[in-house]
Nucleic acid binder design. Structure first.
Lengths: 215, 215
DNA sequence: TTTTAATGAACGATCGTTCGTTCAGAAAAT
DNA sequence: ATTTTCTGAACGAACGATCGTTCATTAAAA
């Protein structure tokens, strides 16, 4: 039986190492963003974090393992958006709220640059591909369900291929986010309105309710 | 004064070296597609082309110079699509034809993979960025002009921000192309119809003319 | 003979990874 | 309470491989 104070000490140690691990991950993210994954050396990360080369390998099995961990964290963030798409609101309101928040997310340079690194690595690295596509596929199908509901309730015209339309919505928002990000600004109400307008008509909406542009 | 046969001989020599140069470029393209730009070594290219390492440097100043040359060729291909957008047909027909052919272009894996390599390198390499964005910006503005004409002739609703809509069209087609490419197939008439449908409504078209699905 | 193309050894740098070692601190034994 | 054992975080030298690039040399064409 371990005494309480022993537990505490042990836990504090574990917390410390976890903290450092997370810090290393954050540092790696910064490096990957600035230089790109393949252009970043393990030594870059270690030096940035003020940590020895060997110690980094105590925390991560390989360079790929670092990216895998990052990809997992990034992919997990997507699940937050599924909550929006499955709330109690009307389908079209859910869609609109989703569009707004997903656009905001995709304007932040850290998300944009990281997503580019991860997805372009995923093209040739199946280990990365799986992590990322799992969560993304789930989001696409949730979005597709929302589209089906919307057309079932006659809020939009019938969506012929919901999965493709869902893919199209994601792509459009992400691309718009990239554009805004590379313009070095954040999303304005006009951006949000405009993308919603195109989305709404693109998926078969017929009488546009102009968004209220509230937060 | 050079004698005619000398001219001929000299030209044949020049042609030979140019041929080899092009072959090296093609080989580099294949390598970049398969492994990615940064993952491909100069030796990979030389070995694939059956050429010595030093000889490759007789044709190209550096590894970056190879990619720059490729980016230039790739960017030049975009100008072909501008012809479609400025033909004598009606704006909406031009748009439709453009969408069809640009989608076909963006389904071919060599174009897709190469574009990904180039654009993701362009994020951090200004030399690459300039080459690519020049031609792309030109295409976007040509497309925007076509949209303006279309709405001026009441073929579609008035386009509030033509440049953004143009960007949106390109993005959508490219993304759809990527999707089809990674599905390891080529564009079907259904693909073309569906993307045109979304595009048409997205840019403010109101009474959809279903595309004829001819070549 | 003069130019030009082609070669591959060699360079210094950096890559991802491994390794033996040090040492603070937790656990166990006294 | 004191001592010993043990664990694992931290370190940086070193490894072999590969990187992009240069260059002296050879072969071939003009």
């Amino acid at each position: 039986m371990t005494k309480p104070q022993d537990q505490k000490k042990e836990n504090s140690r574990k917390r410390e190492t976890e903290k450092r691990r997370n810090f290393l991950l954050e540092t790696a993210v910064t490096a990957f963003m600035e230089k790109g994954y393949h252009q970043t050396g393990i030594r870059d990360i270690a030096k940035r974090a003020g940590v020895s080369l060997g110690n980094l390998y105590n925390h991560f099995r390989s360079k790929e393992a670092v990216l895998i961990e990052i990809a997992r964290l990034e992919a997990d963030e997507l699940s937050g958006f599924e909550g929006i798409l499955t709330s109690a609101a009307s389908p079209i309101d859910r869609l609109q709220k989703f569009a707004r928040s997903y656009l905001a997310y995709n304007c932040k340079s850290e998300n944009v640059l990281l997503a580019i690194e991860i997805t372009s690595e995923a093209i040739r690295n199946p280990n990365i591909a799986k992590i990322y596509s799992n969560n993304r596929d789930k989001m696409i199908s949730t979005l597709a369900d929302c589209l089906k509901e919307a057309s079932a309730e006659n809020e939009i015209a019938s969506v012929r291929i919901p999965l493709v339309s869902a893919h199209f919505i994601l792509t459009l928002i992400e691309a718009e986010g990239q554009r805004i990000c590379f313009d070095n600004r954040s999303a304005t109400p006009q951006d949000t309105d405009y993308i919603w307008e195109m989305l709404y008509y693109g998926i078969g909406g017929r009488d546009l309710r102009f968004p209220s542009s509230e937060n």
